[in-house]
């Protein structure tokens, strides 16, 4: 525990916690929105993240001129995943909205199994890695701690996404409907909106974020089978801690979880995973609807 006295160590862990939190937020916000409006727990959301990562790796490897091609491939990955999400929503999920929860749970879990094997068939089982994009490979020194430049860019992108999400939820017509629907589902029918296209749009946006997150993480972590399941479990914890269906809750949950992962290691390796689930259980016992969520009717 003595490490905690060293400000350099603390800042370093803080940095890594924030970076983790950003990726978590990109995934969990989509999961949370989908739950808020559709009341569906979408296990397959982590698969979209994984597919985003694979596509980004694949495109980077194919495109010439690395510096530009990384960002191009991130965009390609996010867009392809967004379209994939929309297709899944239109062709499959659409049919289970009115079914019981356990049925939906199994249904999206089946999608996880299919996507994970499809990825293995398409991209193999070995780990792939992507080097940091040109010009962002270095690091900046701040207060005695080295911050990799790439992570600073991630921080900037993450903050932008938070702002854009907040604006679109609060300043656009669709956003208002989504927020209203998250509070009271009955309202959707009464509003007379085109619910079906609202769902598809929402799914696309959520999938875009998942794909974006998967693509952006490739220079930091290797692309491997199993990353889908790992991230979805983490995202669940985040969403439950923050509050299902709450944007700020998801952000708070991501930060809390990021810090638990970063500092849990001080106690013992793998302690963080225990701490995370303990925290999740505690929140569910004391405030089932999450730190910033609201009780569901």
């Amino acid at each position: 525990m003595l490490e905690l006295l060293d400000s350099g160590f603390v800042l370093g862990q803080l940095r890594s916690g924030v970076t983790t939190a950003i990726f978590l937020f990109l995934i969990a916000s989509g999961l949370s929105l989908i739950f808020g409006v559709l009341r569906i727990i979408n296990f397959a959301h982590g698969s979209l993240y994984m597919i985003g990562a694979y596509i980004a790796w694949d495109t980077t490897a194919r495109l010439p001129g690395y510096g530009v091609s990384f960002w191009a491939s991130v965009l390609v990955a996010a867009c392809v995943v967004a379209v994939l999400g929309a297709v899944v929503e239109r062709c499959l999920l659409r049919f289970v909205y009115r079914r019981e929860e356990h049925y939906q749970l199994l249904f999206t879990y089946a999608l996880v199994l299919i996507f994970s094997d499809a990825a293995k068939i398409l991209w193999g089982t070995e780990a792939h890695s992507v080097s940091r994009p040109h010009g962002l490979a270095g690091s900046v020194e701040l207060g005695g701690v080295r911050f990799p430049t790439y992570e600073l860019v991630i921080l900037a992108i993450g903050s932008m996404v938070v702002i854009v999400l907040w604006l679109s939820l609060n300043r656009t017509g669709y956003g208002r409907i989504i927020r209203a629907a998250a509070l009271d589902r009955e309202m959707l029918g009464a509003l007379g909106t085109d619910v079906s296209s609202l769902y598809t749009t929402m799914f696309m946006a959520a999938s875009f974020l998942a794909g974006l997150s998967g693509a952006l993480i490739t220079p930091i972590r290797s692309v491997v089978p199993g990353m889908d399941v790992e991230i979805i479990v983490d995202a669940f914890i985040v969403v439950v801690i923050g509050g299902l269906g709450s944007l700020w809750g998801t952000l708070l949950g991501s930060l809390v979880y990021g810090m638990v992962l970063a500092f849990g290691i001080v106690i013992f390796p793998r302690f963080s995973i225990f701490a995370a689930f303990a925290l999740m259980a505690l929140v569910l016992i004391i405030r089932p609807w999450g730190l910033l969520g609201r009780p569901i009717r």
Partner: peptide, 25 residues
């Protein structure tokens, strides 16, 4: 059992993962 529906499922999951982490460590 104090929780309903999806929250019940989530809490059973969280407890099970705690058990797993303990057995693991």
């Amino acid at each position: 059992v104090r929780l309903t529906r999806v929250y019940f499922s989530m809490l059973t999951l969280a407890f099970a993962q705690i058990v797993w982490a303990v057995c693991f460590k």
